Simulated assay, not measured.
Amino acid sequence: MTNGSDVDALVSGDNFIGKLPDHLLIEIFVRVPVTEWAQISCVKKHWANLFRGECLWQAALVKSYPLASQAKRWPGPIPRGLSRRRFAALYISKQIFSLDGDMNEIVGHAYLFLKEQLELSTTPPSAVLHGTMIDQFIACGKSRDVANELASQIWIAVLDNLEENEHTFLLLKRLAQEADVFLPYPYSRSSKVQWRVFEKLFTDFRDCFNHVDYYDVLSCAKNRFQPIPSAWLGY
C-alpha cells in the first residue's frame, strides 16, 4: 500500500508518473488513500480533470466497493447519481455509520441529500426533507419504524457534521422554532433530532445569541422538553 513518503513522490509531478497514460494513472490514484486524493488532484490540471471524470470514480468503486456493481434497481425519490456520487455515499455510510450490506449506499445518499439541502437552503423545508428520506427507505422495503429510525440517525449525523458558522446557527435556530408536530408519524422529526438541535444551539452556538433570540429559543425548548438541562441555561 502507498505510504506517506510514496505519496510525496507521487504528487511531486517531476517523475515518470506524470508521463503515464490515463488508465495507468487512474489505477495508481485509486490505490492511494482517499485522504490524499484532494492533494493529488491539485498537483496538475490534467490530474484534476481525471478526478472530475467518470472513469476514475468507476475504478474507485470497483477497487473499494466491488459488490456495488451487483446493486439492484434504485427505488425511491433520492437520486443515485454517477460513480463519484455513489463512491461518496458508500464512503460516508462506512465512515460515519459503520454500515455494510444492501442498505449502506442508500443511507449514504440520504445523508448527502439532507446535508446539501440544509447547507444550500435559506429556508429549509425540514418536514419535506424528513419525509423524502422516509419515503426512500419505505420504497426499499423498510417498515415505517425502521425508516424513521434511519432518518433520525441521518439527521443527527448531518447536524454533527455541519460547519460552525453563521449559516448553521441561523439554520439551527429556524429548526428549533419550527413546528412540524402536525405531520403524521413518521413524517415529523423525532424528539431525538429536536433535542440535538437545541443541544447544539445552547452549547456550540451560545455566543451567537442576542438577548431576545436566546429567550425565544429557550421558550421553544421548554415547550418541547421538560425538564431541560441546566447547561442550556445562563445566557
Rank of each mutant, 00 (worst) to 15 (best):
M1G: 12
G4T: 13
G4Q: 14
D8C: 10
L10F: 09
L10Y: 08
V11R: 12
G13Q: 12
G18Y: 05
L20D: 05
E27V: 11
I28K: 14
F29Q: 00
R31I: 10
V32E: 07
P33M: 04
E36K: 13
W37L: 09
I40N: 02
I40H: 06
V43M: 10
K44R: 11
N49E: 11
R52F: 15
W57D: 00
W57F: 14
Q58A: 04
A59G: 12
A60P: 01
A60D: 01
L61A: 12
K63G: 04
Y65A: 11
P66E: 15
P66F: 14
A68K: 04
A68V: 06
A71V: 13
R80S: 08
L82T: 10
S83K: 13
R85I: 08
L90V: 01
Q95R: 14
G101Y: 04
G101S: 07
D102R: 12
M103V: 06
E105P: 03
E105C: 13
H109F: 01
H109K: 11
Y111A: 00
L114P: 05
L114G: 02
K115S: 05
E116L: 05
E119W: 03
T123F: 09
A127K: 06
H130Y: 03
T132A: 07
D135F: 02
D135H: 06
Q136T: 08
I138E: 05
C140H: 09
A147T: 06
N148T: 01
E149M: 13
E149W: 13
L150W: 11
A151F: 03
A151K: 00
I154S: 11
I154Y: 07
I154T: 06
I156R: 11
A157K: 09
N165M: 07
H167T: 02
F169W: 13
L170N: 08
L171G: 00
K173Y: 15
R174F: 04
L175H: 07
A176F: 00
A176R: 03
Q177M: 12
Q177W: 01
L183T: 02
Y185S: 03
P186D: 09
S190V: 01
K192Q: 10
K192A: 10
V193C: 12
Q194D: 06
R196A: 05
V197Q: 04
F198V: 01
E199T: 07
K200T: 04
L201E: 09
D204W: 02
F205G: 02
D207Y: 15
C208S: 12
N210T: 06
Y214E: 01
Y215S: 06
C220F: 12
C220R: 05
A221E: 01
N223E: 04
R224K: 13
R224D: 00
R224E: 00
F225I: 02
A231D: 10
G234T: 13
G234C: 09
